[in-house]
């Protein structure tokens, strides 16, 4: 059984004259331990979709099945699903409120009713995970820098150890180094706990590098769904959807179109390096 199954989800904001269909018949499947990237132009419904996945928004029709159970079945399940499907909002740094970072990170675990000892362990784990120095834990969250606040907010969700972790544009506004470390940590988390991860992203490079599946949203619909190789092989379609290929893929395509005998289904820099080296080695052998 898949860990997450979304069936024919329809969601509308507002009523009557102000009705706005933000999700239109969206369906997909996700297996345990997979990393899914959701990409799509601004306003295509990505944030709306992830908010239905942990039951914050109730869809007009359709189902969200977590381990086979419809999360909207009853209120108890709807409350508990929040701990199993952890959602980090877009710009989560604005939700901090406690006196210290430590207390803020423990807000979620506290709501789960864990013991003090367990809470402490989890907070330490989560802080270490996002790279928050220990001395910051006793500071007020309002004294941190923007990036540190973002990390604290993400730690607040990680500390709940959700089975599915959803992050809505987690790297927006972070420096490239921090962004990369965050993603590397997510991959590590997946290895460690088999956590299923969903990331909303505007970066094709990121999506290509870390995901097992990619979903492309367009005007409230799921336009494409598949492995990165499948999705990025349809470059015409992507351009139509106001997206583009990862930079490195574009470079490989250009090389090929200039007559270089090279693979152009390459998505990451590492792959590209080995492919280019291979081509060069072959060229030298010919001489």
């Amino acid at each position: 059984m898949s860990i997450l199954e979304v069936k024919n989800l329809v969601f509308e904001y507002g009523t009557g004259k102000y009705k706005n269909r933000a999700l239109d018949d969206v369906s997909f499947l996700l297996e345990k331990g997979e990393i899914l990237s959701i990409i799509g132009h601004t306003g295509s419904g990505k944030s709306t979709l992830v908010q239905t996945l942990n039951g914050l928004l109730k869809p007009k029709s359709g189902e969200v099945l977590f381990n086979g159970d419809n999360i909207f079945k009853n209120n108890l399940l709807l409350h508990q699903i929040k701990f199993k499907v952890g959602l980090v909002f877009q710009y989560p740094e604005y939700q901090l409120f406690e006196e210290t970072v430590f207390k803020d990170i423990s807000f979620g675990p506290h709501n789960m009713g864990l013991s003090e000892c367990e809470i402490k362990k989890r907070v330490m784990f989560a802080a270490e995970f996002v790279g928050l120095r220990n001395d910051l834990l006793q500071k007020s969250p309002f004294d941190l820098s923007g990036g540190e606040r973002r990390r604290a907010a993400i730690a607040g969700i990680i500390a709940m150890k959700p089975e599915i972790l959803i992050l809505d544009e987690p790297t927006a506004g972070l420096d490239p180094g921090s962004g990369r470390r965050l993603l590397d940590n997510l991959i590590r988390l997946r290895k460690m706990n088999k956590t299923t991860i969903i990331i909303v992203s505007h970066s094709m490079e990121e999506a290509a590098r870390i995901s097992d599946k990619i979903m492309v949203m367009d005007h409230s619909k799921c336009a494409m769904f598949g492995t990165p190789k499948d999705v990025f092989s349809e470059d015409k379609r992507l351009t139509e959807l106001s997206l583009e290929l990862p930079q490195i893929t574009r470079i490989m395509k250009m090389l090929k179109s200039r007559g270089c005998d090279i693979r152009d289904d390459i998505l990451t820099v590492d792959e590209a390096v080995s492919e280019i080296l291979r081509v060069i080695a072959r060229g030298e052998r010919h001489e």
Binding site: Q51, N54, L56, H79, K82, F83, G86, L87, F89, P92, Y94, Q95, F107, G108, N111, M112, G156, I157, M160
Partner: peptide, 12 residues
């Protein structure tokens, strides 16, 4: 937005 964010952390 904030209500939703805190609800996601299990705030009742």
């Amino acid at each position: 937005k904030i209500t939703n964010a805190q609800k996601s952390r299990g705030a009742d």
